[in-house]
């Protein structure tokens, strides 16, 4: 898959997972890589960039086991951005699906 395209989609994935609850970095990476084939290392730069753009805030929380966890929380700005991305994605996906449907039908006819 095209790298640039994948990056945009990963951005959407990260944002959407933080919509309902805060999560820590490792958790996000594991969740995404369980669904999409990516290098796990490329999620952290995205988290960083989106934090710099004030879509997330971060805080540390100690855990009973293992290292303390860096949690990401979606800001209002991030939520607005997320909803824009979702709309864009839905339009894009339905457009592609329509084209696929037409293409497949043509092959059959």
């Amino acid at each position: 898959m095209n790298v640039q395209f994948k990056k945009g989609v990963l951005e959407l994935c990260v944002l959407v997972m933080l919509d309902k609850k805060d999560r820590y970095g490792y958790e996000l990476v594991q969740k995404i890589s369980s669904q999409i084939e990516i290098s796990e290392g490329s999620i952290y730069p995205i988290l960083r960039r989106l934090t710099n753009e004030e879509y997330f805030t971060t805080y540390l929380r100690e855990s009973t086991e293992g290292p303390s966890r860096k949690y990401y929380r979606l800001t209002d700005k991030g939520r607005t951005y997320l909803y824009e991305l979702i709309t864009e994605w839905n339009e894009f996906a339905s457009g592609v699906n329509q084209l696929i449907k037409e293409g497949v039908n043509n092959d059959e006819g």
Partner: peptide, 27 residues
């Protein structure tokens, strides 16, 4: 570094974690 610690905690090897992360220069 934290990513490695979490992975090790789950019983993965350092090599496996590094492999899944991808190349440092790409990152």
């Amino acid at each position: 570094e934290e990513h490695f610690l979490f992975g090790l905690e789950e019983g993965k090897s350092e090599e496996a974690i590094a492999g899944a992360l991808g190349s440092p220069s790409q990152i």
